[in-house]
Simulated scan of single mutants.
Amino acid sequence: MKNIFLLIFLVVINNPLCSQFVMSKSTSDRIEGKLKKEILDKASLRCWYEFTQYCLNEGVKEQVVDTFTLDIGPKYSVYYDQNRIMRDSLDRAEGEKLRPRVKLIRQHMTKGEIDALRGQGDGNYRELLSKGETAVLYKDRKRQKATIIDGSITEMYKCMDEIPLQSWELKEDTMTILGYVSQKAETTFRGRRYVAWFTPDIPLQDGPWKLYGLPGLILKVVVDDGLFIFQAIGLQKLDSFPITMNKDQYVTTDRKQIRKLAFKKNNKRHFLGTDGTFSMSFEADKRIFDELERE
Protein backbone atom coordinates (compact mmCIF):
# COMPACT_ATOMS: atom_id res chain seq x y z
CA MET A 1 0.00 0.00 0.00
CA LYS A 2 2.95 2.32 0.90
CA ASN A 3 2.82 5.65 -0.95
CA ILE A 4 -0.03 4.55 -3.18
CA PHE A 5 -2.33 6.32 -0.74
CA LEU A 6 -0.60 9.59 -1.44
CA LEU A 7 -1.29 9.26 -5.14
CA ILE A 8 -4.86 8.22 -4.48
CA PHE A 9 -5.28 11.79 -3.30
CA LEU A 10 -3.52 13.23 -6.32
CA VAL A 11 -5.55 11.19 -8.79
CA VAL A 12 -8.87 10.77 -7.02
CA ILE A 13 -9.64 14.44 -6.46
CA ASN A 14 -9.41 14.81 -10.23
CA ASN A 15 -11.70 11.84 -10.87
CA PRO A 16 -15.02 12.61 -12.59
CA LEU A 17 -16.75 11.30 -9.44
CA CYS A 18 -15.70 14.55 -7.76
CA SER A 19 -18.22 16.86 -9.39
CA GLN A 20 -16.97 19.95 -7.56
CA PHE A 21 -13.61 19.79 -9.34
CA VAL A 22 -13.30 20.85 -13.00
CA MET A 23 -10.15 19.47 -14.58
CA SER A 24 -8.53 21.44 -17.38
CA LYS A 25 -6.48 19.78 -20.12
CA SER A 26 -3.34 21.35 -18.62
CA THR A 27 -4.12 19.77 -15.25
CA SER A 28 -4.87 16.42 -16.85
CA ASP A 29 -1.60 16.49 -18.82
CA ARG A 30 0.28 17.46 -15.66
CA ILE A 31 -1.15 14.53 -13.71
CA GLU A 32 -0.35 12.09 -16.48
CA GLY A 33 3.11 13.51 -17.18
CA LYS A 34 2.19 14.49 -20.75
CA LEU A 35 3.10 18.19 -20.74
CA LYS A 36 5.27 19.35 -23.62
CA LYS A 37 8.79 20.36 -22.63
CA GLU A 38 11.07 23.22 -23.64
CA ILE A 39 14.77 22.34 -23.88
CA LEU A 40 16.78 25.14 -22.22
CA ASP A 41 20.26 23.62 -22.37
CA LYS A 42 22.17 20.35 -22.26
CA ALA A 43 24.00 19.37 -19.08
CA SER A 44 27.49 17.88 -19.02
CA LEU A 45 27.80 17.34 -15.26
CA ARG A 46 25.52 16.27 -12.40
CA CYS A 47 26.36 17.00 -8.78
CA TRP A 48 24.45 15.66 -5.77
CA TYR A 49 24.30 17.78 -2.62
CA GLU A 50 23.25 16.85 0.87
CA PHE A 51 21.36 19.80 2.34
CA THR A 52 21.16 20.04 6.13
CA GLN A 53 18.97 22.50 8.02
CA TYR A 54 17.24 22.72 11.39
CA CYS A 55 13.64 23.20 12.42
CA LEU A 56 11.59 23.44 15.59
CA ASN A 57 9.01 20.68 16.03
CA GLU A 58 6.70 21.65 18.90
CA GLY A 59 9.60 23.42 20.60
CA VAL A 60 12.19 20.67 19.99
CA LYS A 61 15.12 21.40 17.65
CA GLU A 62 15.42 18.81 14.87
CA GLN A 63 17.90 18.29 12.05
CA VAL A 64 16.43 17.78 8.57
CA VAL A 65 18.56 16.33 5.75
CA ASP A 66 17.54 16.31 2.09
CA THR A 67 19.39 15.37 -1.10
CA PHE A 68 19.34 17.67 -4.13
CA THR A 69 20.61 17.30 -7.68
CA LEU A 70 22.30 19.98 -9.79
CA ASP A 71 22.52 19.42 -13.55
CA ILE A 72 24.90 21.93 -15.15
CA GLY A 73 24.99 23.08 -18.78
CA PRO A 74 26.97 25.84 -20.55
CA LYS A 75 24.26 28.47 -19.89
CA TYR A 76 21.66 26.96 -17.55
CA SER A 77 21.58 24.68 -14.55
CA VAL A 78 18.64 23.04 -12.81
CA TYR A 79 18.50 22.28 -9.07
CA TYR A 80 15.86 19.81 -7.88
CA ASP A 81 14.96 16.93 -5.59
CA GLN A 82 15.54 13.94 -7.86
CA ASN A 83 14.17 11.47 -5.29
CA ARG A 84 10.89 13.41 -5.07
CA ILE A 85 10.50 13.41 -8.85
CA MET A 86 11.17 9.66 -9.03
CA ARG A 87 8.62 9.00 -6.26
CA ASP A 88 6.02 11.15 -8.02
CA SER A 89 6.56 9.24 -11.26
CA LEU A 90 6.15 5.86 -9.56
CA ASP A 91 3.08 7.08 -7.66
CA ARG A 92 1.51 8.33 -10.89
CA ALA A 93 1.83 4.88 -12.45
CA GLU A 94 0.36 3.17 -9.38
CA GLY A 95 -2.47 5.68 -9.24
CA GLU A 96 -3.52 4.93 -12.79
CA LYS A 97 -3.94 1.28 -11.80
CA LEU A 98 -6.15 2.24 -8.85
CA ARG A 99 -8.36 4.74 -10.65
CA PRO A 100 -10.95 2.18 -11.94
CA ARG A 101 -11.49 0.86 -8.40
CA VAL A 102 -12.64 4.19 -6.96
CA LYS A 103 -16.37 4.16 -6.12
CA LEU A 104 -16.82 6.84 -3.47
CA ILE A 105 -14.71 9.69 -2.10
CA ARG A 106 -15.03 11.47 1.23
CA GLN A 107 -12.83 14.55 1.19
CA HIS A 108 -12.52 15.01 4.95
CA MET A 109 -12.31 12.85 8.03
CA THR A 110 -13.14 14.44 11.34
CA LYS A 111 -10.56 14.65 14.11
CA GLY A 112 -12.59 12.11 16.06
CA GLU A 113 -12.47 9.65 13.17
CA ILE A 114 -8.72 10.11 12.79
CA ASP A 115 -8.13 9.61 16.52
CA ALA A 116 -10.27 6.47 16.44
CA LEU A 117 -8.22 4.99 13.60
CA ARG A 118 -4.87 5.63 15.26
CA GLY A 119 -3.52 2.64 17.11
CA GLN A 120 -5.95 0.14 15.61
CA GLY A 121 -3.35 -1.36 13.29
CA ASP A 122 -5.74 -1.17 10.34
CA GLY A 123 -3.70 -1.87 7.20
CA ASN A 124 -6.00 0.34 5.14
CA TYR A 125 -5.19 3.48 7.15
CA ARG A 126 -2.04 5.53 6.52
CA GLU A 127 -0.57 8.76 7.85
CA LEU A 128 1.85 10.33 5.41
CA LEU A 129 3.98 13.45 5.72
CA SER A 130 4.89 14.94 2.36
CA LYS A 131 8.64 14.54 2.00
CA GLY A 132 11.03 16.18 -0.39
CA GLU A 133 11.21 19.55 -2.09
CA THR A 134 8.71 20.05 -4.91
CA ALA A 135 10.22 23.29 -6.23
CA VAL A 136 12.56 23.19 -9.22
CA LEU A 137 15.10 26.01 -9.63
CA TYR A 138 16.48 26.95 -13.05
CA LYS A 139 19.54 29.19 -12.99
CA ASP A 140 20.39 31.32 -16.04
CA ARG A 141 23.97 32.36 -15.27
CA LYS A 142 24.40 34.60 -18.31
CA ARG A 143 21.28 36.68 -17.61
CA GLN A 144 21.76 36.39 -13.82
CA LYS A 145 18.22 35.16 -13.25
CA ALA A 146 16.59 32.21 -11.53
CA THR A 147 13.21 30.69 -12.36
CA ILE A 148 11.51 28.74 -9.57
CA ILE A 149 8.66 26.40 -10.50
CA ASP A 150 6.38 24.96 -7.82
CA GLY A 151 2.72 24.29 -7.20
CA SER A 152 -0.01 21.80 -6.53
CA ILE A 153 -1.94 19.31 -8.61
CA THR A 154 -4.47 22.02 -9.50
CA GLU A 155 -2.16 24.98 -10.22
CA MET A 156 1.51 25.62 -10.97
CA TYR A 157 3.43 28.79 -10.12
CA LYS A 158 6.45 30.47 -11.68
CA CYS A 159 8.72 32.91 -9.87
CA MET A 160 11.29 34.98 -11.77
CA ASP A 161 14.11 36.01 -9.45
CA GLU A 162 16.98 38.41 -10.20
CA ILE A 163 20.17 36.94 -8.74
CA PRO A 164 23.14 39.23 -9.46
CA LEU A 165 26.54 37.56 -9.30
CA GLN A 166 27.53 37.22 -5.66
CA SER A 167 30.59 39.23 -4.63
CA TRP A 168 32.99 36.54 -3.38
CA GLU A 169 36.09 37.15 -1.27
CA LEU A 170 38.70 34.46 -1.97
CA LYS A 171 40.70 32.98 0.91
CA GLU A 172 43.90 30.92 1.02
CA ASP A 173 42.39 28.04 3.03
CA THR A 174 41.75 24.76 1.23
CA MET A 175 40.13 21.40 1.91
CA THR A 176 39.68 18.22 -0.13
CA ILE A 177 36.12 17.29 -1.13
CA LEU A 178 35.35 14.24 -3.25
CA GLY A 179 39.05 14.06 -4.06
CA TYR A 180 39.21 17.67 -5.34
CA VAL A 181 41.33 20.34 -3.66
CA SER A 182 38.85 23.13 -2.94
CA GLN A 183 39.55 26.76 -2.09
CA LYS A 184 37.63 28.79 0.48
CA ALA A 185 35.54 31.86 -0.41
CA GLU A 186 33.07 34.01 1.50
CA THR A 187 30.14 36.25 0.61
CA THR A 188 26.97 37.80 2.00
CA PHE A 189 23.73 37.08 0.18
CA ARG A 190 20.26 38.28 1.17
CA GLY A 191 21.01 38.70 4.84
CA ARG A 192 23.22 35.68 5.53
CA ARG A 193 26.94 34.95 5.52
CA TYR A 194 28.10 32.11 3.25
CA VAL A 195 31.40 30.26 3.48
CA ALA A 196 32.03 28.15 0.38
CA TRP A 197 34.66 25.78 -0.98
CA PHE A 198 35.06 25.52 -4.77
CA THR A 199 37.38 23.53 -7.00
CA PRO A 200 39.13 25.16 -10.00
CA ASP A 201 39.66 21.61 -11.33
CA ILE A 202 35.98 21.64 -12.39
CA PRO A 203 35.77 24.99 -14.27
CA LEU A 204 31.99 25.38 -14.05
CA GLN A 205 30.94 28.60 -12.33
CA ASP A 206 27.93 27.12 -10.59
CA GLY A 207 26.85 25.72 -7.26
CA PRO A 208 23.90 24.60 -5.14
CA TRP A 209 20.67 26.57 -4.94
CA LYS A 210 21.15 30.22 -6.08
CA LEU A 211 24.90 30.31 -5.45
CA TYR A 212 27.32 30.71 -8.36
CA GLY A 213 30.10 32.83 -9.85
CA LEU A 214 33.29 31.35 -8.39
CA PRO A 215 36.04 30.14 -10.79
CA GLY A 216 35.08 26.53 -10.27
CA LEU A 217 32.23 24.32 -9.06
CA ILE A 218 31.10 24.99 -5.47
CA LEU A 219 31.29 21.71 -3.54
CA LYS A 220 30.46 22.86 -0.01
CA VAL A 221 28.71 25.79 1.64
CA VAL A 222 28.24 26.53 5.33
CA VAL A 223 25.70 29.25 6.12
CA ASP A 224 25.75 31.32 9.32
CA ASP A 225 28.04 28.95 11.26
CA GLY A 226 26.20 25.77 10.38
CA LEU A 227 22.54 26.76 10.38
CA PHE A 228 22.41 25.49 6.78
CA ILE A 229 24.97 23.26 5.04
CA PHE A 230 25.28 22.21 1.39
CA GLN A 231 27.73 19.31 0.93
CA ALA A 232 28.57 17.67 -2.41
CA ILE A 233 28.30 13.89 -2.08
CA GLY A 234 28.64 12.72 -5.69
CA LEU A 235 29.53 13.72 -9.25
CA GLN A 236 28.56 12.21 -12.60
CA LYS A 237 29.55 13.18 -16.12
CA LEU A 238 26.58 13.47 -18.48
CA ASP A 239 26.36 13.08 -22.23
CA SER A 240 24.41 16.19 -23.29
CA PHE A 241 21.56 15.49 -20.85
CA PRO A 242 18.65 17.86 -21.68
CA ILE A 243 17.67 20.53 -19.17
CA THR A 244 13.93 20.92 -19.76
CA MET A 245 11.04 23.01 -18.42
CA ASN A 246 7.38 22.01 -18.75
CA LYS A 247 5.19 24.17 -20.98
CA ASP A 248 2.44 24.67 -18.42
CA GLN A 249 -0.14 27.32 -17.57
CA TYR A 250 1.86 29.00 -14.82
CA VAL A 251 0.64 31.63 -12.39
CA THR A 252 3.30 34.32 -11.87
CA THR A 253 4.27 35.00 -8.26
CA ASP A 254 7.18 36.31 -6.17
CA ARG A 255 9.77 34.38 -4.17
CA LYS A 256 8.21 35.06 -0.75
CA GLN A 257 4.84 33.70 -1.84
CA ILE A 258 6.34 30.63 -3.48
CA ARG A 259 8.16 29.76 -0.23
CA LYS A 260 4.89 30.06 1.68
CA LEU A 261 3.38 27.66 -0.82
CA ALA A 262 6.17 25.15 -0.17
CA PHE A 263 5.63 25.20 3.59
CA LYS A 264 1.86 24.86 3.19
CA LYS A 265 2.28 21.66 1.20
CA ASN A 266 4.26 19.91 3.94
CA ASN A 267 1.12 18.70 5.66
CA LYS A 268 0.42 15.33 7.20
CA ARG A 269 -2.13 13.49 5.07
CA HIS A 270 -4.54 10.90 6.42
CA PHE A 271 -5.89 8.22 4.08
CA LEU A 272 -8.35 5.40 4.60
CA GLY A 273 -9.35 3.15 1.72
CA THR A 274 -11.55 0.05 1.76
CA ASP A 275 -13.58 -1.59 -1.01
CA GLY A 276 -13.29 1.36 -3.36
CA THR A 277 -14.27 3.95 -0.73
CA PHE A 278 -11.54 6.46 0.07
CA SER A 279 -11.48 9.05 2.84
CA MET A 280 -8.82 11.71 3.31
CA SER A 281 -7.96 14.61 5.53
CA PHE A 282 -5.05 16.91 6.36
CA GLU A 283 -3.15 17.98 9.45
CA ALA A 284 -0.93 21.06 9.39
CA ASP A 285 2.81 20.48 9.59
CA LYS A 286 3.88 21.84 12.99
CA ARG A 287 7.55 22.13 12.08
CA ILE A 288 8.92 25.68 11.94
CA PHE A 289 11.77 26.28 9.47
CA ASP A 290 14.07 29.26 9.27
CA GLU A 291 14.33 30.99 5.88
CA LEU A 292 17.57 30.92 3.92
CA GLU A 293 16.77 34.37 2.51
CA ARG A 294 16.21 37.07 5.11
CA GLU A 295 15.83 39.86 2.58
Rank of each mutant, 00 (worst) to 15 (best):
I258A: 03
E162N: 06
N15G: 03
D115P: 07
D225F: 09
T52N: 04
D161R: 02
E38S: 04
K37Q: 15
K103T: 02
I153Y: 09
F228S: 03
F282N: 07
G119H: 07
R126G: 08
G216H: 09
E186N: 14
R87D: 14
E133M: 14
M175S: 09
E172I: 07
P16L: 06
G151E: 06
M1I: 08
E293H: 12
T253F: 03
D201I: 00
V12I: 08
D275T: 04
T277W: 06
E162R: 00
N15K: 13
R46I: 01
H108V: 10
K61T: 10
D225V: 06
K268C: 14
S182F: 04
K103Y: 01
K260I: 06
Y194A: 04
V78T: 06
M160L: 12
K145I: 01
M160Q: 13
Q166L: 15
S130I: 10
V22I: 14
F68S: 05
E295Q: 13
R46D: 00
K158L: 12
T174V: 11
K265T: 09
F228P: 01
N246F: 10
I177E: 03
I163R: 00
S77V: 01
L170S: 11
Y80L: 08
K260G: 15
P203Q: 03
L70D: 01
S281N: 10
K142N: 11
K103N: 06
N57A: 10
D173R: 13
R126F: 15
L40G: 03
S130H: 12
D206Y: 06
K220H: 11
Y180F: 14
D66V: 05
T52A: 05
M23P: 01
W209F: 15
L7K: 07
K97L: 14
P242Y: 12
L10P: 01
G191W: 01
V222A: 08
G216R: 10
S19F: 11
K210A: 03
T188I: 05
L56A: 09
R193H: 15
T67E: 13
A232Y: 05
K97A: 11
L165M: 13
D173L: 09
I258V: 09
E162A: 07
L227F: 12
F68D: 00
C55Y: 05
L70G: 02
Y180Q: 13
I233N: 06
